[in-house]
Nucleic acid binder design. Structure first.
Length: 313
DNA sequence: AAACAGGTGCTAA
DNA sequence: TTAGCACCTGTT
């Protein structure tokens, strides 16, 4: 398919993920920081649309617009600028999207299983229906969650976008790639501060340095046992238990991990630990024990649920 | 405009 | 082992 608009030439491809997807929930739940709400050009029927940047193989990135109609189905439509697609073909771009959106996850079954735990999770799944845990680029995920330390989602988004604009390459739609570790490692701290990353500049640089030096081999982590990979990630300054768990879940699709931030801590305390204040470690252990191999999805539903109705509301 | 939100590293008990 | 503090930016 082909779309002509006033100032750009877009190609479009339909993608079926084989199970429900809700783009708004998936792209705005805080697992990823590169997507913005937009209008899908020439397709007023696609009332939900987001513009972002995804990996398309060989370390290349491409700006895309993804859209869906008002219903939560398994179908999305993807548009991109062919001029920026490089060697990626129509078909390979569709495949890249299937991978990114974890088409291999049977989310229908996952939702049913987690619903079955109790009324808390049943309500949480209802609110998060169509959520998909993504499979993001390893480095972008690691860097993004280093930037998430003691920071809010709008702020993280702003910094990531600044980094791309300052140090990335054009990937279409006026967007820029997320800069590689060596690009970031080469920058002065004073320069990085311009992106508003604040005190996280040295953490970001340490992460970049360790990756460039091969001391943290992001590809090798793929085949490492989760606990070992976690320890390796935590050897980076600025990567503690929460950031490591986010990278394992969202960059390596280790669905058994249960990242525990203050919100999840509150949720676990309120719903499962008798309301008493608990350490993040206790909350995490309880989450992993309860939800086992589905802990990652459970965590995200819980996050959506607790943020919809915070304690003391 | 002062208070607040948010993980991690570091130092002190 | 853990408690308490500093770190930066943006919002209320």
């Amino acid at each position: 398919m082909h779309i002509e608009t006033a100032n750009r030439d877009l190609a479009a491809v339909d993608v079926d993920l084989g199970g429900p997807v809700n783009l708004a929930i998936t792209l705005e739940c805080g697992q990823v920081f590169r997507w913005r709400k937009t209008a899908f050009p020439g397709r007023p029927d696609l009332v939900v649309a987001y513009e972002g940047v995804i990996p398309v193989g060989d370390g290349r990135q491409l700006a895309v617009i993804v859209g869906q109609d008002a219903d939560v189905t398994s179908k999305i439509v993807v548009a991109y600028e062919p001029a920026h697609a490089g060697r990626a073909t129509h078909g390979s771009i569709a495949d890249s999207l299937k991978f990114y959106f974890s088409a291999q996850d049977d989310v229908q079954t996952i939702e049913e299983s987690i619903r079955g735990f109790d009324s808390v999770m049943s309500s949480a799944v209802e609110q998060g229906h169509g959520l998909r845990l993504l499979q993001q680029d390893h480095w972008e995920c690691l860097a993004s969650f280093v930037l998430s330390i003691n920071n809010s989602i709008p702020n993280i988004t702003r910094i990531v976008e600044n980094l791309a604009a300052c140090l990335g390459d054009p990937v279409g739609l006026g967007r820029f790639s997320f800069p590689s570790p060596d690009r970031i490692h080469g920058q002065e701290s004073a320069f990085l501060r311009q992106t508003k990353c604040g005190f996280r500049d040295r953490y970001l640089k340490d992460a970049a340095k360790r990756v460039v030096a091969g001391e943290v081999d992001l590809l090798a982590l793929e085949v490492m046992p989760t606990e070992e990979a976690r320890e390796r990630l935590m050897s980076i300054r600025g990567v503690g238990p929460k950031v490591a768990d986010c990278v394992l879940l969202l960059g390596y699709h280790r669905l058994e991990v249960f990242p525990t931030d203050v919100w999840i801590g509150r949720a676990m305390s309120r719903f499962y630990l008798g309301g008493r204040a608990v350490t993040p470690k206790i909350a995490r252990d309880e989450g992993m024990r309860r939800f086992g191999p589905l802990a990652g999805y459970a965590q995200e539903y819980l996050f959506i649920s607790i943020r919809n109705s915070p304690p003391g509301d």
